[in-house]
Amino acid sequence: MKPQEDIREPGTSHGELCLRLSSTPRGARLARALAVQQLTEWCACPHDSDLARTVALVTAELASNAVTHGGLPGRDFRLTVRLLAETVRIEVTDTRPECLLPATAPGPVGPDAVSGRGLVLVDAYAARWGCSVRDAYTKCVWAEVRR
Rank of each mutant, 00 (worst) to 15 (best):
P102E: 08
I7Q: 07
A127N: 08
R32F: 10
S23G: 08
V55T: 02
L100R: 13
P111N: 11
R89P: 02
G70K: 05
G74L: 05
A66P: 11
G15S: 05
L21M: 12
V120H: 07
V67R: 02
C43G: 14
D94E: 07
V122I: 13
S13G: 10
V55M: 00
L84Q: 00
Y125V: 15
L21N: 11
G15W: 03
R96V: 11
A127M: 14
R53N: 15
R29M: 11
L72A: 08
A33H: 05
V88W: 01
V114F: 13
A63K: 09
L34V: 14
E86R: 14
S132R: 10
P46A: 01
H14E: 10
V55E: 03
W129E: 14
L57M: 12
E61R: 03
V120N: 08
R53G: 13
T59Q: 11
S22N: 08
A126Y: 11
V55F: 02
E41P: 02
A60V: 15
T40R: 06
S23C: 02
A105W: 02
A85M: 10
T93Q: 05
Y125S: 12
P111L: 08
R32M: 14
L39R: 02
R134L: 14
C43K: 12
E61I: 03
A28G: 09
A31S: 13
L101R: 11
L79A: 09
V122M: 04
T93W: 04
T95C: 14
V109M: 10
S23W: 05
H14G: 11
D6R: 15
E86C: 04
V120W: 03
L72T: 10
R78F: 03
R20N: 10
A127C: 13
A31C: 10
A124M: 10
S13W: 00
P73I: 01
D50L: 06
L62E: 07
A105R: 02
H14W: 11
S22F: 09
R8P: 02
T59D: 12
